[in-house]
Computed example of a mutant assay.
Amino acid sequence: MSDEDLLKELEEYRNIIRRVLDAFENVPFHIIIKVATDRDVERFDLSDAKDRSLVEELKLLADITMQHFYSNPITISRINEVSNYLEEQVPHMFLRNRSQFSVIKEVKHLGGSGYPDLIVVDNYDRYTYIDVKATQRPGTGSPRDFYITPLKETKRKVNHDGRHCVLGFVVSGTPNNFRIIGWKLVDLYNVKLRMKPEFNCSNLELYKSENILVENNI
């Protein structure tokens, strides 16, 4: 291949990669769910009485969880595991205080990996999906503070149109002594996400004989 042909091929690849990256920059959450699951994401509308009552009871559930785990520290050694623990505990907090809720009728842990963690069913037969997060640094961030890989597990879990939100707990403390000191409920509808591209290959490509510089075996 001549230098001219090589430069032309390089420019073609550069343009393709640039277009792919641009296409997946700042994609609204509701578009990702619609494409991945063929289910619609609905906005929270605080001018609607049903949505206001739902949000009030989600607030109550968050407050109950916060108060409990402020008084009873979470004895887990790694902050990264607190989210996993809380996603299992929130449904228990609902069941233990069931009599305080008149709009929410079910909070279920969906299990497995991937988005989302919980499904909430209300008395209007509507569905709300919740991802539970825990952080010690709500004022700073990294690209993977919230992420979604809309593959098999998300398709399995999201099988209704509905609202989608993050319940983010603010955590303080040290390993084996984490306390919840705050929380934030976030409507995911219009949250913008970007795709982190990854180029990969299998061992069949990686260890081709023409690519190996040197090797040794016993």
Rank of each mutant, 00 (worst) to 15 (best):
H109N: 15
H109W: 13
H109Q: 13
H109D: 07
L110V: 09
L110Q: 13
G111Q: 07
G112D: 13
G112W: 06
G112N: 11
S113T: 15
S113I: 12
S113W: 07
G114L: 06
G114K: 06
G114C: 06
G114Y: 00
G114H: 10
G114T: 12
Y115D: 05
Y115H: 10
P116L: 08
P116F: 02
D117G: 07
D117Y: 01
L118I: 12
L118S: 06
L118N: 09
I119Q: 11
V120D: 00
V120C: 00
V121I: 08
V121T: 15
V121K: 12
D122R: 08
D122F: 00
D122Y: 02
N123T: 15
N123Y: 10
N123A: 07
N123C: 04
Y124W: 08
D125F: 08
D125E: 15
D125S: 11
R126V: 01
R126L: 02
Y127R: 09
Y127W: 04
T128R: 02
Y129W: 10
Y129Q: 05
Y129G: 04
Y129H: 09
I130T: 08
D131P: 03
D131C: 01
D131T: 01
D131A: 02
K133G: 03
T135N: 00
T135S: 04
Q136E: 13
Q136Y: 07
Q136D: 05
Q136N: 10
R137L: 06
R137W: 06
R137H: 12
R137I: 12
P138Q: 11
P138M: 07
T140G: 02
G141H: 14
S142R: 15
S142T: 15
S142V: 15
R144D: 14
R144H: 13
R144L: 11
R144P: 05
